[in-house]
Design a protein around this nucleic acid. Structure first.
Lengths: 136, 136
DNA sequence: TTGATTCCTATATGTTTGGTATGAATTATT
DNA sequence: AATAATTCATACCAAACATATAGGAATCAA
């Protein structure tokens, strides 16, 4: 299953915005306000992104977030995966065994896997940097 | 949003199975049994596929379904669309106007559209015929 | 110690999905 | 004409998932 949720969209926009703050970074509240994303929701999102080493956090007063990687290096796939969004089509590939009575199921699952690989390739090749370029 | 649901998977498998019945076609109940898909759910699926001219139906006694198009001609995109599964990423492209205060949103939405087009291309190029070939 | 912040986890709300139920409409067969 | 077999149409329901909201713990600079 490949899905692009609101969460993913928020994440992308937040990262893009964070980029404009450069090395200094900023505080979550700021981005929440500027991008009009619910604070508490964004907290969860940033927690995930931080865990995935896409951004860096510092707690406490004078704390905040800043990008840890250049957006050139961060793929869409990486973001989606860190948010634990499923990036798979095939459902039960383990059923696809020779003995499986539903032959068309076996075939179909393998078929899904092929598609999945193609789409994952796109998601992996797409770096966030492209976003900034996509308006020019 | 691109998603592959159970419904889509059922549809694919059902079409594949239907193909094995050739010109004569068969009755929904039969496919339901062989593919282990809930009858009533499959009814809805087939109704959609029929509306999309992918298969042909005949009501009443001695009725049933048969493929209307060769699976060579039917794309994954077509199936998904006929089931009214969303095949779009971009959410609110109409907000992406010059006046939009959320510039990163505008950028992002355009970015999503690019991705969407790539993925749609894959889905459109993928014909169901490939499924049968994918195990060989 | 205080205030600002991130982090953690539980809960509430809304939407989608997968499936069920009921029955109407259609058609071949008897 | 009656019957049985089918597709067609629609409404409903429960579970899963998405989108938040809430409360407070942990951390840290001043």
């Amino acid at each position: 299953m490949v899905k692009v949720t609101q969460k993913t969209r928020y994440a992308i926009r937040a990262l893009l915005r964070l980029k404009t703050f450069g090395e200094g970074g900023t505080v979550l509240k700021e981005i929440s306000k500027e991008e009009d994303i619910p604070v508490k929701f964004l907290e969860q999102i940033f927690a995930s992104l931080a865990k995935a080493d896409i951004l860096e956090s510092k707690r406490g007063a004078q704390g905040g977030y800043r990008l840890k990687k250049s957006l050139k290096e961060v793929s869409l796939y990486e973001v989606m995966k860190s948010l634990r969004e499923d990036v798979k089509f095939a459902h039960c590939l383990d059923i696809a065994k020779p003995e499986c009575p539903l032959k068309s199921k076996c075939k179909a699952e393998k078929f899904w896997r092929n598609i999945q690989e193609k789409i994952m390739k796109i998601l992996m090749e797409t770096k966030l940097e492209e976003i900034d370029e996509s308006l020019s």
